[in-house]
């Protein structure tokens, strides 16, 4: 069956794409999918799961609902599901945190 993955912010950078389609076996769980993604993309290794659970610094949605409110990593995917993975972002005000590299 087919699922669609959507990545936001830093995960988008790590994957190099906003949206990825994947074919998975029926009964595949969110945890199995995330684990496969970590193996597939170097930039995602260790970023999605910690001790088999979804890391607390990111949010994973299956069809717009946070999986942590349901069965978490055990959430079973269904054909046509969209899974969105996004981190918190902080930007907004100044940019004085990191000095400019041109010396000014």
């Amino acid at each position: 069956m087919d699922v669609t993955l959507r990545f936001f912010a830093t995960f988008r950078d790590a994957v190099g794409q906003k949206e990825v389609g994947r074919e998975v076996d029926p009964g595949t769980t969110v945890g199995e999918l995330l684990s496969a993604l970590e193996r597939e993309y170097d930039g995602l290794e260790g970023e999605l799961l910690a001790d088999g659970e979804i890391r607390s610094q990111l949010n994973v949605l299956a069809n717009g609902r946070g999986v942590q409110y349901g069965d978490g990593v055990e959430t079973e995917l269904e054909d046509g599901d969209t899974v969105s993975v996004f981190p918190p972002v902080a930007g907004g005000a100044s940019d004085a945190v990191v000095p400019n590299t041109d010396g000014q």
Binding site: A9, T10, V89, A96, V97, V98
Partner: peptide, 10 residues
Amino acid sequence: PEPGTVPDCA
């Protein structure tokens, strides 16, 4: 997130 893992505007 761990400091430094999410970059800022700069």
